[in-house]
Amino acid sequence: MKFGVVVFPGSNCDDDTVYALRVNLGQEVVKLWHKDHDLQGCDFVVLPGGFSYGDYLRSGAIARFSPIMDAVIAHAQRGGYVMGICNGFQVVCEAGLVPGVLLRNNGQRFISKNIYLKAQTNQSILTSGLDVERAYKIPIAHADGRYFANADTIKELQDNDQILFKYCDANGVVSQESNPNGSLESIAGVCNKTRNVFGMMPHPERAADEALGNADGKLILQQLLGVLQKQT
């Protein structure tokens, strides 16, 4: 199992993601430069958080046309795994790999704090072994995190069980109060129809080391390994 973490100009969670995968999860990880055209044989591509291209125009909009993205999109279309975290989620949305878009937070402000997440399904490799009754504490750090899609798309996400995570409170209650950014249906993470591309605004890689006092993120990232190793 080989992970590749894409580095765009302005990515700033690439090292955290590499650390979590390499040190906390013991996986082989390489960085993939945005100007490259091949994925160096990676099985799983992660688009990390940050501010690719300064968030100019729209978050993720310019990164989506980076040279490496042709290879990432082809990989996803072949059924290869791709995960976008935070700015990476914005990039996979802009690339059309998952439905929807991330708008400016309804409170207009950049929010950097721990929130709670609840997995909505076990039918994805990212959430396969998570306790759907439990609230996982994971940090968010974004200004454009308000998930939006038209009503038909939201219904399709629900019908196809593509909503992976919702924001909730410490007790696992999903409500307007526990929705930090105004996301429709409190959506914090989704997958595509074929369930091989994932996007989430919260940062599991920032909560993957015991030294940080919170390793809930490791519980989420570990899901990838359990299922993937069974497959190989």
């Binding site: 125009l57 729209r58 909009a61 310019i62 046309f65 802009e94 929807g100 878009v101 708008l103 939006f148 899609a149 038209n150």
Partner: peptide, 8 residues
């Protein structure tokens, strides 16, 4: 393709 995102 780039300047506008027609979803929003």
């Amino acid at each position: 393709k780039l300047l506008a995102n027609l979803i929003m």
